[in-house]
């Protein structure tokens, strides 16, 4: 499973290499264009701040009050059955519903357990391999007025579950449980 670790460290340099070489070859002013795009990063981050404040306060209150411990205690049998680390389970629930809420939950997990803990790694993998299903379906089907969505939600949830199991499995293999 070392190859998964190696791929992780080569991915970013390789991408820089390819993009910059192709860019220069095609006559793109790479540095100027880079600066132009980097500005967009600032607006993206500024846009995240209000929802992150709101949701991290909610997650913080939920944790500090002991309500999160209660929830984790209640769902622990399910987590054990599916072999998901119990502290990552709240993220599993929130992920398909809201991107910013799961981002808040993820940073809460990082704060409490650390990003390099097993839970932190599983949570990172979960976050990256599953998506906000309900929001995406609502936006796209809403845009064209589809009422009967047929098997879309079922198929998307199957994909979500597959992602969860695969995330836990590969993290156990690569990082050790």
């Amino acid at each position: 499973m070392n190859i998964v670790k190696d791929l992780s460290s080569y991915a970013i340099p390789a991408l820089f290499f390819v993009i910059l070489c192709v860019g220069l070859y095609r006559g793109v002013k790479v540095y100027d264009v880079f600066l132009e795009g980097a500005k967009e990063g600032i607006t993206t981050v500024l846009r995240i701040i209000p929802p992150l404040v709101g949701l991290m306060v909610a997650v913080g209150v939920f944790r500090a009050s002991g309500a999160l411990d209660l929830l984790v205690y209640v769902v622990k049998p399910v987590a054990d059955l599916l072999r998901i680390p119990k502290d990552a389970l709240p993220l599993v629930f929130l992920r398909p519903i809201s991107g910013s809420a799961s981002l808040a939950m993820l940073s809460d997990i990082f704060n409490v357990h650390g990003p390099d803990s097993f839970v932190g790694r599983v949570a990172s993998t979960l976050m990256g391999s599953t998506e906000t299903i309900f929001y995406t379906l609502a936006v796209y089907f809403g845009a064209v007025g589809i009422k009967n969505i047929r098997h879309t939600l079922a198929a998307a949830l199957i994909a979500d579950f597959a992602g969860i199991f695969a995330a836990v499995w590969i993290c156990t293999k690569v990082f050790g449980g």
Binding site: K5, F110, P115, G120, S124, S129, A159, G163
Partner: peptide
């Protein structure tokens, strides 16, 4: 931002998990 020693170490695991999700989907 959370102080990880190796922030990119999860790229590979995310690929594996999301390819599985994609195939299943």
């Amino acid at each position: 931002a959370a102080g990880s020693k190796n922030p990119t170490e999860i790229i590979g695991t995310i690929w594996v998990a999301s390819i599985s999700a994609c195939m299943a989907g």
